[in-house]
């Protein structure tokens, strides 16, 4: 049988995200606080398409988890060029750590970067339950009990902290990127789920801005609490418009939702846009909204 020279074609068909994955891995691995780097999702399993996200599990020394999380937004902005502060991932399963999602421009378009930060002490159990490709393994000596407690209490407090208007705005922007991906792939059920999450984020944004001390759960008593001023009525009008759309959106519906939310933020909590104007302009450019 002749020897086929497939290296060139293999290289040409490698996932488009591979250079970005490699760059991010280099950035993260620079710190000795990082004990493990694992790739999960489609890039780990060879099923990636050009829309696939880059999904890392990052093991961090238990005692250093708080300072690592504190530095992460600045690190991702400075070293990776992330457009916005990370979104605290509320979709990812609880594996003993915390998830952050960043939007990083690369090669002219936005990429979704998922980072799941796990205390090193949780990594062995995590590896038993989640399929990953390990690209860095600096297994440390077992963490001391107080260090484990530091990481656990930090992660629990981080997840439990109420979201600010800025964080909820960023949640909309990230979910819109996810939704465009689902629509292009024809993933109708996931699109339905994320579309509902986006509307829920709009509701949460309105409540955070206009009824921060609300005693009511979820979607209850919105009219009684919020539709008592012109701003409140206008915001609930926006929410009504959002939920009156199709159950599964088209791309134009997602874009309209983002523009509606940006107008809502300007009206109800303009301080949430502080420092984000250029990022939102860039977001619109990368998403071809302008």
């Amino acid at each position: 049988m002749p020897t086929l020279q497939l290296a060139e074609i293999t290289h040409a068909n490698r996932p488009a995200q591979l250079p970005l994955l490699s760059k991010l891995a280099d950035i993260l691995a620079t710190s000795p606080a990082v004990t493990h780097l694992m790739v999960r999702g489609s890039l780990a399993h060879g099923t990636a398409d050009r829309l696939s996200d880059v999904d890392f599990v990052v093991g961090v020394h238990d005692a250093q988890l708080p300072s690592f999380v504190e530095a992460l937004d600045a690190l991702m902005s400075i070293e990776a060029g992330a457009l916005l502060p990370g979104w605290r991932d509320t979709i990812v399963a609880d594996l003993g750590g915390l998830g952050m999602v960043f939007l990083v421009p690369d090669d002219g378009r936005l990429h979704q970067i998922d980072l799941y930060l796990a205390p090193a002490s949780r990594i062995p159990r995590l590896r038993e339950t989640v399929s990953t490709a390990v690209i860095l393994d600096r297994t440390p000596t077992p963490a001391a009990t107080p260090d484990i407690a530091v990481a656990e209490s930090f992660a629990a407090a981080f997840i439990a902290r109420p979201r600010t208007c800025t964080e909820l705005l960023i949640e909309h922007l990230v979910l819109a990127v996810l939704l465009h991906k689902r629509i292009k792939r024809g993933q109708r059920f996931v699109a339905y789920s994320e579309w509902h999450r986006l509307h829920t984020a709009t509701k949460d944004l309105i409540k955070t801005a206009l009824a921060p001390a609300s005693q009511f759960w979820g979607w209850y008593q919105l009219r009684e609490e919020i539709a008592v001023t012109p701003i409140g009525r206008a915001c609930l009008g926006d929410l009504d418009a959002a939920i009156s759309g199709p159950a599964i959106p088209e791309g134009t519906d997602v874009n309209a939702a983002i523009e509606r939310v940006l107008a809502l933020v300007e009206r109800a909590c303009p301080q949430a846009l502080d420092g984000l104007h250029d990022a939102i302009t860039a977001y619109r450019t990368y998403q071809e909204l302008v």
């Binding site: 710190s31 606080a33 300072s67 690592f68 530095a71 600045a74 690190l75 070293e79």
Partner: peptide
């Protein structure tokens, strides 16, 4: 202080760039 935290984590060049920015 943020830069010092980054440098302590091993991200010294990122800390420098944060200050330059």
């Amino acid at each position: 202080e943020t830069a010092r935290n980054m440098a302590t984590l091993g991200y010294t060049e990122a800390a420098e760039r944060m200050l330059l920015r």
